[in-house]
Design a protein around this nucleic acid. Structure first.
Length: 453
DNA sequence: AACATTACCAACCGCGGAGGA
DNA sequence: CTCCTCCGCGGTTGGTAATGT
């Protein structure tokens, strides 16, 4: 890191100079004729001190003025970033706690890639920090074929769908149109979920434990998504083990509630896992030996058992995980590990997550910036909604059944589904992708993959 | 023990939007 | 309306530490 850009930092001007022409002027006016390039690369403690001092005197904002007033050879953007990410007094320097990690997942499911807003929900954390965490997590999950969102988050989303009335009462500062949230985005083809339910019936799981011991957590974790392991044999066992440990460590606060984080561990050499984890092996490759997985609580099934093509493309599917960005009230999100009502199969949601991109998605002209942003979704949906109201364009009237729970029609047309799809954003996994990626099936799924088995 | 790989992190770039002048 | 400035975001790079071979 220390030498990261030493070679180039003096030869190139900060990009901020593009953003901030005034910075050039400042440079020119106060930095020796403008010939002194702005410094880039790692910040020194001296620079930090200067910046801190500047902020103390002038407050945050107007970052380009820092150059002028403090003599720092840093562009305003760099100063802002440094302050926001490292120097702010309220920053937490410790690693994310399991609670924070859970919260991030929740927030991402809710907001999409709104890092700043997520950071606002996590005192002491920065958008960059969250983004890095998320991207790392996404990378890990993608590689391992794990669902981006834990089942509990999916449950929460589903619950939100059901309980749209609360969507407008957020404590997150979000001010989305409740009406929109309630009605426009999540019409999930019933056929799909019937399919999932059907598949569930095919499953035969052993009874499970719900204590909070690490072993049971692991068991539940495995159980909660495990079929995936059977279709994701792509990861080097050692690598996956390491990743899994990381996940477990990071999310141990919730795995006991059905985290699917050990999905692909079922093909691990049990002995090694035991050795590493110090736990009784929850990775018995024989699924029939597992204790009851949490999805018994939330009936459903997994793609692997659906004979759904999606299950055959786990990695691909895992890479396309834009969930609907749902808003929900705080009262609903106490924890994604605390289901409060009969909810759709987490496995069903996993199935969605694991599903390969639909034809629409694959062909969908993507927005210039992959976003997965709720606002964008909402806005576009609103626009569509309005336009449809005007044009009289019929929306597909498809109800949703989550694990036996019927969801009222949400008036989302196939067109809107396409809009929600976000192909270019492997990291842009908001909840919207979960549903949007799930091809709306009006009996005309382009490739038929959405058809029932 | 040496080397290779991977995860994590800090920092940057490019772009675009918002808001004020 | 245009320009400027700030800010946010996605993507990327490169260093370091941890881990695996």
């Amino acid at each position: 890191m220390s030498s990261m850009m030493n070679g180039s930092e003096d030869s190139k001007r900060s990009k901020d100079c593009r953003d901030s022409p005034a910075a050039d002027e400042a440079n020119g006016g106060e930095m020796m004729g403008g010939m002194i390039p702005l410094k880039k690369g790692p910040w020194t403690s001296a620079e930090d001190a200067i910046l801190i001092d500047y902020v103390k005197k002038h407050g945050e904002g107007n970052w380009n003025a820092v150059q002028k007033h403090s003599g720092l050879f840093r562009c305003g953007k760099s100063c802002r970033l440094r302050w926001a990410n490292h120097l702010r007094p309220d920053l937490k320097k410790c690693a994310f706690t399991p609670e924070e990690e859970n919260r991030i997942i929740e927030l991402h499911a809710t907001m999409g890639n709104k890092w700043a807003r997520m950071a606002a929900e996590l005192p002491g954390r920065t958008d960059n920090e969250i983004k890095n965490y998320w991207n790392t997590r996404i990378k890990r999950l993608q590689r391992t074929g794990l669902p981006i969102y834990p089942p509990d988050v999916c449950q929460q989303l589903y619950k939100t769908i059901q309980d749209g009335k609360n969507l407008g009462t957020l404590q997150t500062g979000d001010t989305y149109d409740p009406d929109l949230m309630q009605t426009d985005h999540f019409k999930i083809p019933e056929v799909e979920f019937k399919n999932l339910e059907l598949s569930r019936d095919v499953l035969s799981y052993s009874s499970g434990l719900f204590d909070t011991s690490p072993s049971s957590m692991l068991k539940q974790g495995v159980g909660s998504s495990y079929g995936n392991a059977l279709v994701f044999p792509t990861i080097h066992p050692a690598k996956r083990l390491r990743e899994s440990q990381t996940i477990f460590t990071g999310l141990d606060g919730c795995v006991g509630r059905g985290m699917p984080v050990f999905d692909q561990l079922t093909d691990y050499p049990c002995g090694k896992i035991i050795e590493r984890s110090g736990l009784s092996s929850p990775y018995d490759p024989d699924l029939s030996t597992y204790d009851q997985p949490p999805w018994d609580v939330f009936p459903g099934s997994h793609a692997i058992l659906n004979d759904n093509s999606s299950s055959n493309m786990p990695i691909c599917g895992a890479m396309k995980l834009e969930l609907p960005s749902l808003q929900y009230s705080e009262s609903q999100q106490d924890s994604w590990g605390t289901p409060t009502s009969p909810l759709p199969s987490l496995e069903s949601v996993d199935t969605l997550i694991q599903s390969p991109p639909t034809k629409e998605m694959q062909s969908d002209g993507q927005s210039p910036r992959s976003s997965g942003l709720l606002e964008a979704v909402l806005y576009e949906s609103r626009t569509l909604k309005n336009s449809k109201k005007c044009s009289g364009h019929p929306t597909s009237d498809v109800s949703v059944t989550f694990g036996g729970v019927h969801v009222s029609p949400l008036n989302t047309s196939a067109t809107e589904w396409e809009i929600h799809a976000d192909l270019n954003s492997p990291s842009g996994h908001s909840a919207s992708s979960l549903f949007s990626e799930y091809t709306p099936v009006n009996g005309s799924s382009p490739d038929g993959q959405g058809e029932t088995i």
